[in-house]
Computed example of a mutant assay.
Amino acid sequence: MAENKVKSGKEILDDFFKEISSIENVDKTIAESLAELYNNGKLSDKNVINELLRIRTENGDEN
C-alpha cells in the first residue's frame, strides 16, 4: 500500500531552493544568491533587494 506523504511548507521550500538553479531560464547567479540567503535563514525582502542590487552593480547594469 503506497503511503501519500504531504510535504510541509519547509520541505517544499527546501526542495525548491535546492533545485532553483536548474530551473530553465532562471539566472544562475540570482538563483544561487537566493538559495544562499534561504539556506542561511536570511531570505527577507530587504536582503533580496540588497542582493539583487549587488548583482546588478557587479554586472555593470545601471538600469
Rank of each mutant, 00 (worst) to 15 (best):
Met1Asp: 01
Met1Trp: 04
Met1Leu: 03
Ala2Lys: 06
Ala2Gly: 05
Ala2Ile: 07
Glu3Ala: 13
Asn4Tyr: 07
Asn4Asp: 08
Lys5Val: 14
Lys5Ala: 12
Val6Asp: 11
Lys7Thr: 04
Ser8Asp: 08
Ser8Val: 05
Ser8Leu: 07
Ser8Met: 04
Gly9Ser: 11
Glu11Val: 01
Ile12His: 09
Ile12Ser: 03
Ile12Glu: 12
Leu13Lys: 11
Leu13Trp: 06
Leu13Thr: 05
Asp14Met: 10
Asp15Met: 12
Phe16Asn: 00
Phe16Gly: 04
Phe16Trp: 13
Phe17Ser: 08
Phe17Lys: 05
Glu19Gln: 14
Glu19Ala: 09
Glu19Pro: 00
Ile20Ser: 11
Ile20Lys: 13
Ser21Gln: 12
Ser21His: 11
Ser22Tyr: 07
Ile23Tyr: 14
Ile23Gly: 03
Ile23Ala: 10
Ile23Thr: 13
Glu24Tyr: 05
Glu24Leu: 05
Glu24Asn: 12
Asn25Glu: 05
Asn25Cys: 04
Asn25Ile: 05
Val26Lys: 06
Asp27His: 09
Asp27Asn: 15
Asp27Gly: 04
Asp27Val: 03
Lys28Asp: 11
Lys28Ile: 04
Lys28Gly: 00
Thr29Asp: 01
Thr29Trp: 00
Ala31Pro: 04
Ala31Tyr: 06
Ala31His: 00
Ala31Asp: 07
Glu32Tyr: 02
Glu32Leu: 09
Ser33Lys: 14
Ser33Tyr: 03
Ser33Ile: 07
Leu34Phe: 12
Ala35Met: 11
Ala35Leu: 09
Ala35Phe: 09
Glu36Asn: 15
Glu36Ala: 15
Leu37Phe: 01
Tyr38Gln: 06
Asn39Ala: 12
Gly41Asn: 13
Lys42Leu: 14
Lys42Ala: 15
Lys42Gly: 13
Lys42Asn: 15
Leu43Met: 14
Leu43Ala: 13
Ser44Cys: 08
Ser44Ile: 10
Ser44Phe: 01
Ser44Ala: 09
Asp45Pro: 00
Asp45Met: 03
Asp45Thr: 08
Asp45Glu: 11
Lys46Thr: 05
Lys46Arg: 05
Asn47Cys: 11
Asn47Lys: 15
Val48Phe: 10
Val48Tyr: 10
Val48Cys: 09
Val48Pro: 11
Ile49His: 06
Ile49Met: 07
Asn50Phe: 06
Asn50Tyr: 02
Glu51Met: 15
Glu51Arg: 13
Leu53Ile: 09
Leu53Val: 08
Arg54Val: 11
Arg54Met: 10
Arg54Leu: 13
Ile55Lys: 07
Ile55Ser: 02
Arg56Gln: 15
Thr57Asn: 14
Glu58Trp: 01
Asn59Leu: 08
Asn59Trp: 04
Asn59Ala: 12
Asn59Val: 03
Gly60His: 02
Gly60Lys: 03
Gly60Met: 01
Asp61Thr: 01
